[in-house]
Design a binder for these strands. Structure first.
Lengths: 120, 120
DNA sequence: TTGTCATATTGACAAATGTCGATGTGTCAT
DNA sequence: ATGACACATCGACATTTGTCAATATGACAA
């Protein structure tokens, strides 16, 4: 990194930029934020979240499946990803499993964003 | 899907949920949103974005690298991902490449989020 | 209890991703 | 021209991811 004139020999190099001393986020914070975004990093899961966010009530898998045009096991696979990421909730009623957006999730994502700087 | 009483035989089954007629997003919209989130779906890239968002000025690779504790080629790899996703900008000045957050990106991400429902 | 239905899990596999060392490319100073 | 430096690209590799058919699980009805 240029700009550190430590040697006795005249190191007059220009600095490439400011030292970047900003408070770093912890590895945990980074991993956690990345996990949130990873859960949304797939078109199928985006569709599911969109569906659930706009649905009047919780929705069962049999109604979600036709909207994403994937096999039922694959839809379950994506729902599990969303579930373990904490983006959706699951409740069993009868033989059906109902999924819904976990309340407050959207604002949490917004928080994750501000975590990386409020400027701009 | 239960609830569709089409047969002449009395199909008195209970419906599992409402028909979910909500306006679907297009495949393009889903893919585009997923691409945004995919760019953020990695701890290293989260750190980089955090760094750039909090930096007073644009930062060069040589200053970013030590903060993410990865090899220089790997950092370049991540920067390229962020670049092609449109999250950061690149300008060459002298022998250094300066990266900065593309202005307006954070609100665009927020928009992508609202795309999946304004309720909660 | 037996069957049916809705959902989850498993096993297999192709494709994408993250990582690094080695090397290429472009820019500046000498 | 030559060398040093900052960064990008390449080749190789292990890991993760998304997908499906087949099968297991769990709930209800008859």
């Amino acid at each position: 990194m240029p700009g550190t004139a430590t040697e006795s020999k005249a190191r007059v190099e220009v600095a490439c930029c400011a030292p970047l001393d900003t408070v770093n986020m912890t590895s945990d914070q980074a991993e956690q934020a990345a996990a949130m975004f990873k859960a949304l990093a797939d078109p199928a899961r985006i569709r599911i979240v969109n569906l659930l966010a706009n649905a009047p009530d919780a929705a069962c898998v049999c109604d979600i499946t036709p909207h994403v045009e994937l096999s039922q096991p694959t839809v379950s696979f994506h729902l599990k990803k969303l579930l373990t990421a904490g983006l959706v909730e699951r409740t069993q009623r009868g033989k059906w499993a109902y999924y819904s957006i976990r309340p407050g999730v959207l604002s949490e994502i917004a928080d994750a964003l501000e975590l990386k700087g409020t400027r701009t």
